[in-house]
Nucleic acid binder design. Structure first.
Lengths: 199, 199
DNA sequence: AGACTTATCTACCACTCGTTATAAAAGTTG
DNA sequence: CAACTTTTATAACGAGTGGTAGATAAGTCT
């Protein structure tokens, strides 16, 4: 057991609150005042636990990745490539409009562009977005080996397409598109997917 | 002719520089210091000409819309709905990776989420994004009347799909996707588009 | 109990933010 | 030229930024 005064706040609970602030306001837009208020702690506690504002974001992103990994496990378990794509887009339509969270995707809302001193934040977010695309790619390569995708299909292009649509859904969700609208986008996107290897 | 001391800078030239700063750093990330330096003017001149930082952004957005309107005129002149979609996505693949500009789309990079005091910026950008979707919608309704789209096609869903893919392309372009990658996304998306009315 | 270790609080740091008052400069008009 | 109008540059405003000393509180260890 560790010595010293025990921390008086729940680290994960505090991270959830921080996550929501970053999600709603972006990295630059999320001030320390907002963050500490939402987390219910004072600045020195925050810095002791997470090192810096950027460290806090990364911790929140780790936690976000934890949530997403459950979704992705379900998605990748789809029987066919088409099934995987459908699960992927559907789960995004739901999660990006889940009233329990701010609309859209933290990895998009967090900050595509940042100010001086936060230049690496967009890179950080981009590399996290790339993770699920890589998972899809692996699954589609497998699907092709299974004969589940046609010979001339391009797994990388398909994975990138789905990842791009997912980011786009994040954008429109954050500007107010509702769940049904996202489902419609998913449906149209799947049409594109089915034809993928045939022209 | 107007009286008084004439302004010593070119308004449009200055707006182009401001546009680039907003594009690269987002609204919150673009500081007055960055903006005035890039524009080659001092703060009071900026405020005299544009009223506020937000006013400057809107003027830059107007100028951005001017550029885009030329593209959209070409896009909407496509002979068929499919042709329009192809022109739309192709022109975006090119413009979002034009080395003369920051990568991606100003309307996406500008700020999906903002801090306290800039809450209306995301709305402003969203409403500008909605404009081209509305133009596509009008064109697809026409296409349906022309018998160019099947009876059961949903023009609104198609327009939203294209608009969503465009936003997604903005996201991936801003994180380093190159022109060829965007073209591939456009190609796969068109496959989905062609099937749109058939399931 | 007392030594030790870590967390928390108050208060503050230097700095940057967007914005503006003031006055000098540069033109046009009579 | 002098009166007038507008833009320019200097310099500063109050508020807020991310981050941190220093002291105190709250635990565990011997």
């Amino acid at each position: 057991m560790v010595m010293g005064r025990p921390r008086s706040f729940d680290r994960d609970k505090a991270l959830d609150e921080a996550m929501e602030v970053f999600w709603r306001h972006g990295y630059d837009g999320a001030s320390l005042a907002m963050l500490t208020k939402a987390m219910g702690i004072k600045a020195p506690s925050l810095y002791a636990a997470f090192g810096s504002k950027e460290g806090l974001l990364k911790a929140a992103l780790d936690r976000y990745a934890l949530r997403r990994s459950e979704h992705m496990r379900y998605v990748l378990a789809g029987a066919t490539a088409r099934d995987v794509a459908e699960r992927f887009l559907s789960s995004i339509a739901e999660s990006h409009t889940d009233p329990a969270n701010p609309p859209g995707c933290l990895l998009v809302q967090g900050g595509l562009a940042c100010g001086a001193g936060s230049e690496n934040i967009p890179f950080e977010l981009a590399s996290r977005r790339a993770e699920s695309e890589t998972e899809l790619l692996g699954r589609f390569i497998q699907a092709k080996a299974d004969g589940d995708l046609p010979e001339d299909a391009d797994p990388a292009a398909l994975a990138r397409f789905l990842s791009t649509v997912a980011s786009g859904m994040g954008v429109i969700a954050s500007s107010g598109a509702n769940r049904e609208a996202l489902r419609e986008v998913a449906r149209v996107s799947l049409g594109a997917f089915a034809r993928s290897g045939r022209d």
